[in-house]
Simulated assay, not measured.
Amino acid sequence: MRGPLLCEGRVVVVTGAGRGLGRAHALACAAEGARVVVNDLGVGLDGTPDDDGPAARVAREIRAAGGDAVAHGGDIATTEGAASLVRTALDTYGRLDTLVNNAGFLRDRMLVNLDEDDWDAVVRVHLKGHFLPLKHAAAHWRAEAKAGRRPEARVVNTSSGAGLSGSVGQGNYSAAKAGIIALTLVAAAELGRYGVQVNAIAPAARTRMTEETFARTMAAPAEGFDAMAPENVSPLVVWLGSAAGAGVTGRVFEAEGGRITVMEGWRPGPSTDKGARWTPAEAGVATLNLLAQAEAPAAVYGAVG
């Protein structure tokens, strides 16, 4: 017999939830008892308008399965849209417990061909699109804590392997996703006093953004288990977004298929201290000696040689 639902009584907001990973997260949270605010602006892979209403479709799908969901179509990379997202949760359900930041799109180019507009658009939707919902949700949770109603609030941000190791042809995306990791660490440190836990995932899954890549590089799914299905990532998101994950904050996890990895990030490696200023030549010798003792960095995705 199944135990209690992990998200029973919780209100979960998922951005970019009209398709792919976001849709899988929204459905998985609803299946665990959450009432879900399904956000999606409804745009194509490159951020151009798409009027087919993906957020409304996912909300209907949740309700058809016996859950509770409402659609939100605002642009969460604007102050108005992010504030509206939080208001939708509060006006509809009277509370907000979990924010899953997932929205994003791609405009891939090699650096020498990367237009400023393509840089700005990708950094805006990924990095600013994480910051603004987080800011408005955190303001609500801080007010609740100061009023004596300390929440068990959770934030799950979405980075990428590109943010951890870089990815050739994705300088804008990689930089934004690396920024999300730093934002996660800062938010976890700042918001813990208000009952807010903040973590990040770096998922690997087949979505609209990655299907061409995986079609070229991945083998066909094994019978009975599709390792690249976005639904494989969602159980970790559900758990991190629930009260069950108490005490887990400021962490980054890779999730792919049946694998979960705790990423350990930047830590001090080999070091030396002269106790005085180096000459350039001395600094070079010391640096080469340190590099000989250090672990090699992970390979950049798509790098040759």
Rank of each mutant, 00 (worst) to 15 (best):
T207L: 03
G67W: 08
A28Q: 00
Y194N: 11
V86A: 02
M263W: 15
A215E: 15
L111F: 10
M218P: 04
S167E: 15
T98E: 04
G161L: 13
G18Y: 01
D46W: 08
D226L: 07
A286P: 09
G42L: 05
R2T: 12
V300N: 12
R107E: 12
N113R: 10
E223P: 09
S271P: 02
N199Y: 11
L183S: 06
G44H: 14
A83Y: 07
P133A: 11
V123D: 06
G195I: 14
A34I: 15
A286H: 10
G269P: 03
P151I: 01
D120Y: 09
N113Y: 02
R251I: 15
G179Y: 05
A69R: 05
G302Q: 09
V252I: 02
V43R: 13
L183F: 04
R60Q: 11
D117W: 06
M263K: 15
R142Y: 07
I180M: 06
K177C: 05
A77D: 02
A139W: 10
S271N: 07
R193H: 13
D68T: 13
A31R: 00
K135D: 05
R10D: 00
R2C: 10
G42K: 05
K135T: 00
V155L: 07
Q197R: 15
A296T: 13
W278S: 03
G94Q: 07
L6N: 03
V122L: 08
A255E: 14
L290F: 03
V262Y: 06
A103Y: 01
A298I: 15
T88C: 11
E61R: 02
K128P: 09
V156L: 08
T48L: 14
R87C: 09
A283M: 01
V122H: 06
H25W: 09
V37E: 11
D91Y: 09
E8C: 01
E254C: 11
L21I: 15
V304T: 13
K146C: 10
D115W: 04
V122Y: 05
A220L: 02
N172H: 00
R193K: 13
I201Q: 06
C7P: 01
A182H: 10
V304F: 12
A138T: 10
T184W: 02
N113F: 04
D46C: 08
F131K: 11
H25V: 15
R150T: 14
M218H: 13
T261G: 06
A187V: 04
P221K: 00
L183E: 05
A34L: 11
L96S: 07
G179K: 12
D50N: 09
R60M: 08
S167Q: 15
E282L: 07
E231G: 12
L127N: 04
R216A: 11
T79R: 05
H25M: 12
A64G: 09
S165I: 15
S234L: 10
S242Y: 00
A182N: 10
L85H: 06
G247N: 03
G163L: 01
A205D: 08
M209N: 06
T217N: 14
R124M: 08
G94N: 07
T88Q: 11
V86H: 03
L236I: 06
A255H: 08
E116P: 05
G163N: 02
S159Q: 10
A299K: 14
N102P: 00
L96G: 07
D97M: 01
E61A: 04
A244L: 01
G245T: 13
